[in-house]
Structure formats: structure tokens, C-alpha cells
Amino acid sequence: MSTALHPFWRYASPPQFLQLSGTLLPLLWAVAALLGLSGLALGLFWAPTDAQQGEAYRILFLHVPAAWIAMVCYGAMALWALLGLSLGTHLSFVLMRALAPTGALFAFLTLWTGALWGRPTWGVWWVWDARLSSALLLFLLYLGFIGLTAAVDRPQDPRRGDRAGALLALVGVLNLPVLYFSVQWWSTLHQGASLSPAGSRMAPSMLVPLLLCTAGLWAYAAAAVLSRARLLLAERQAVQARWRAAA
């Protein structure tokens, strides 16, 4: 193995991961609380009322970051699945599994807040259009992943569940471009992207709270995933130790 790859492999090592995540976690929880709460306060109480959508638009400060997190968590899950299957790194599968509950939570919150925003804005809680249907499929893929890995797992050996979950994560990633580009590819009730790499047409008084909420919720999601990954590693090590002692 080339020594040029050394730093990469170093971070595939559980002790290195535990050390790095242990350092990052207090920072992430602090950023999540500080930026998330300040963004929410500004979004709810300081940002002006929208001329077209009235007060209901304030749901945007929760809905948009939740949707981004749900999508990116699934993409990250698929990436760790690919790394785990191709390189056989144990930590990749642990991170893949740690992402699923947080991704599922944010996918559910995207659907919930979307329905609450849709009712006063469109007059309906739900429509079976491309954006909403692919968002529902994303949530179902997360539930399917969690159910499949739990069903296939053997107490003494999580590798079977790891591989089955990784395959589902890789197949399901095809839904992500459909979800992201659905508002461009098809005519839907859903509005276009709030922010894009080309920039934003939002007023700064709305954009600043949105960016703060996004940063805060990203920090929260990262902290929850890292905490779960640390617990998963510890639980796997404990199970292995028990089986070795019994053998």
C-alpha cells in the first residue's frame, strides 16, 4: 500500500475516529445550540412577514435545512456503504448505520413541516407530485434500511446486516437526483430551490436566519451521528469481547 494513502487510512481506524470525534463533539453541540437557537429566534421574531405567504413562510427556517440534511445524510450513507463494500473498512459501515436514524428523523420532519406549510399556502396538506413523492420515498428508504439491517443482523456478527444495508443504500441513492431536480424536471406545486450555487434572491433579513438555522441544524445532525457512531463502536466491541470470552 502506498504511503501516500496513509492519512486516509489513519481516519479509517476506530481509535483515531474516537479521538477526533471526542474533540469535535463538544464544539458541535455548542455550535448547534448557539446558531440553531439564534437563527430560529431571528427567523420567528425578527424576519419580516412575507408579502405573498404571510406568516406561514416562517416554516421555511425549519423545512429547508431539514430537507437538505435528509438528502445529504442519505448521500453520505451511500458513500460510506460504497467505501465499506469496496475497502472492507469496519468504521465505514458503522458511520453508514449511524447516519440512518438522524436522516430518517429529518426526512420525517421535512414531510411534516412541508404539510404544515402546504396547507395554508397551496390549500392542501399533500399532493402526489414528483418532489413530495420522492421525499416520501426517501423517508421510506431510511425506514427500510433500518428495518433491513435490524432483521438481517446476527447478534455475534453485524457484517451480514452491514452488507445488506449497504446494498439498499446504494440502490436508494438513485432517488436523490430525482428528489433534487424534480422541481426542474416536472411541473409541481412545490416552489423552486431557495438557495443554489448561483446565489439567492432572498432578502438578507430572511437569508441570515435561514443560514444560521442551517448551520445549527447541521451541527446538531453531525453531533448526533458522531455520538451514535461512538456508541455503535463500543457496543460492537463489547459483543465481540463477550463472544471471545464464551468461546
Binding site: 420567528l44 404571510g54 406568516e55 406561514a56 416562517r58 416554516i59 425549519l62 411534516w112 404544515l116 406549510w117
Partner: peptide, 10 residues
């Protein structure tokens, strides 16, 4: 205003 249940529900 009238949108309060939606915002608080979210």
C-alpha cells in the same frame, strides 16, 4: 396570526 397553528405545529 391565522397561521399560528401551522408554525407552532412545525
Amino acid at each position: 396570526g391565522t397561521h399560528a397553528p401551522f408554525v407552532w405545529g412545525a
